[in-house]
Structure formats: C-alpha cells, structure tokens
C-alpha cells in the first residue's frame, strides 16, 4: 500500500506519509505538524483529522496523550462569514 495515497487531512489533502516523515524528521509536536503541513487547519477546523494527527505524533514520539488538548481549540469553532465580525 502506498502511504502517500492515504490522505489524513481531507480539507488540505495532507498525506499520512508526509505527517509521519515530518514528525520523524523534526521530532516535533502536533501543533508544529499543523503549522508545517496545514493538516487540521482547513475548512472543517480539524474536526475530522485532529485526533489522527495527535495520534501519529504520539505514536512516533512514544509519548502517551496528556490531559491538555494538544491542538488547542480556538473560536470560531464553525466557519463564519466575515460580516459576523461586524465588518461589511
């Protein structure tokens, strides 16, 4: 099976291979993976893949999940049009 063909983040089309490769290379946090690849940063707000990114990073670094949420939630938790911020 080609791991390049497994998409993890559907919104930004980031592959399993890329996330695994970058985590191994940089031994970094899931937040850094998010910033490097845009995984979990797309239209859905990471609802579909944030756990997947966390899990890959946690497996590769062999760190059990902590109580704090690794990829923090930020408002808005749903996409909203700019006009709702008060602009036109």
């Amino acid at each position: 099976m080609n791991e390049k063909d497994i998409i993890i983040c559907r919104c930004e089309e980031v592959s399993y291979e890329d996330i695994v490769h970058l985590t191994e290379l940089y031994q970094c946090s899931s937040r850094e993976i998010k910033l490097r690849t845009r995984a979990a940063m797309g239209y859905c707000g990471g609802r579909t893949c944030r756990n997947l990114v966390d899990q890959i990073v946690s497996e590769i670094k062999n760190e059990p999940p902590a109580d704090n949420i690794p990829l923090t939630y930020r408002p808005p938790v749903r996409p909203i049009p700019f006009r709702l911020f008060g602009g036109e």
Binding site: G45, N51, A66, I69, T72, Y73, R74, V77
Partner: peptide, 16 residues
C-alpha cells in the same frame, strides 16, 4: 470521541 470544542474555548480543564 467526545465533541468538546466548545468546552475547549472556555477555561475548563480536561482529563485524558
């Protein structure tokens, strides 16, 4: 998995 995003924007702590 529990859908906690709205709690995530408050000061409420979490437990894994």
């Amino acid at each position: 998995y529990p859908l906690t995003e709205l709690i995530g924007v408050t000061a409420c702590p979490f437990k894994f």
